[in-house]
Structure formats: structure tokens, C-alpha cells
Amino acid sequence: MLTYVLTAIGDDRPGLVSTLAAAVDDHGGSWVDSQLALLAGKFAGIVRVDLPEERAAGFLDALPGLAAGVGLQVEAAPAHPEDAADGAPAGTGLVLSLLGQDRTGMVREVTEALHSQGATIDSLRSLTREAPEGGGMLFEAEAVVRLPEGVDESEVREALEAIAAELMVDLDLDATA
């Protein structure tokens, strides 16, 4: 089996996921893992698939047809065998939650603080929404981060709390379950 990571983007419309799933299945592949989202009328996804080695080339050749058929641009990158293995990644997992008045640079400052501590962002979801009673726009984010072995959670918390005060946001950091 060969493992590929697919990235897909296109204008949202019914049938995009089923068309991609059919292409995987038609080539004897298995849909292993995925993250799919809709933002501003665009569908985007990242999908890990396993394909029989003898059918992988046919699958890769079929991907451009998805753009012509349903408007879904799909790129495939081979996954490294060590990255495709199941199991939890090494390191301490934390969930970061942030809520505050929206302003430019928030994501940059938070992610730079995480990077300075050696953290890896496994997932990040953010949005803006109207504050209650006409209080402007709020920015809300939740991230799952992983600290490398030997990095103390308290140091990460300290780095984040310093910028939380500067950004005037509520920031929580909790261990993953």
C-alpha cells in the first residue's frame, strides 16, 4: 500500500466529497483520515488515503479530471511511511482557547509564542463574530498543540499569558484528554 495526502479545494457544491470518495474507491483505495471545511463559499479538505501500489498511478492520473468534472482541484503528495503510522504523536498535548476583541496580528503573536517554545500546532480553528450588544467583533480560536518531550507546560503558559495581557484576551491552556 502507498499512502498519499490529498489537498482539495473548489467552489462549494453538492457532490464534491462523494466524487472524491468515488475516485479513491474506484482505484481500490481506502479513505483513512480527513479534515474537511467550508469557508466563504469554498470547500477545502485534506485527506489521507491508502492505495494499492499497482493502482496508485491510475488514481493520480484521474485527479485532474475532478477539476474538469466537478471543479475540485486535488493535489496528491506521498506520505512518508513513518508519518502514516497510526498512533498518537509524541509529546504533551494541550488545548488552547482564546477569546477577545478582534484586531490584526493576533494569530501571528500567539503562533510565534508557541513556536518559540517548540510547540507544534496539530489543529487550529478560528472565527470572528459580533460581540453582544454591539460591542464590535470578537475573535475566537481553539488550537490543539503538542509540546516536544522535555518542554515544561508552565513555560508555554507563561509565554502565552504575557501576550494574552498585551492582546487583552482570555486565554486558557488545558491538557488534552
Rank of each mutant, 00 (worst) to 15 (best):
E112H: 09
S34K: 05
V49Y: 06
K42D: 12
D102L: 14
L36H: 10
G71V: 05
D86S: 10
A84Q: 10
H80I: 02
G105V: 10
A21D: 04
A62K: 01
A56E: 00
H80P: 01
G71H: 06
L36V: 14
A44W: 03
A90L: 11
A84Y: 04
A79T: 04
L63D: 09
E109R: 07
L98H: 04
A23R: 15
E54K: 07
L72T: 10
A22M: 06
P52K: 05
V24T: 02
A90V: 06
L63N: 08
H80G: 00
A79R: 04
R55T: 15
E53K: 06
D83Y: 12
G105L: 10
A62C: 01
L72K: 12
A79Q: 08
H27M: 03
G93E: 13
E75V: 14
S34G: 05
L39T: 12
E54Q: 11
L94D: 02
H80R: 12
G91Y: 01
T111A: 13
A56G: 04
R48T: 03
V32D: 15
E82P: 01
L63V: 09
E54I: 07
F59T: 07
E54D: 14
L72M: 12
E75D: 15
D83E: 13
G105Y: 10
H27S: 03
P52C: 05
S34I: 04
L94I: 01
A76D: 04
E82C: 11
S97A: 14
T92S: 09
D61E: 14
G91S: 00
P81V: 10
T111M: 05
V95D: 06
L96H: 02
E112W: 05
R55C: 12
L98Y: 04
A40T: 05
G71K: 07
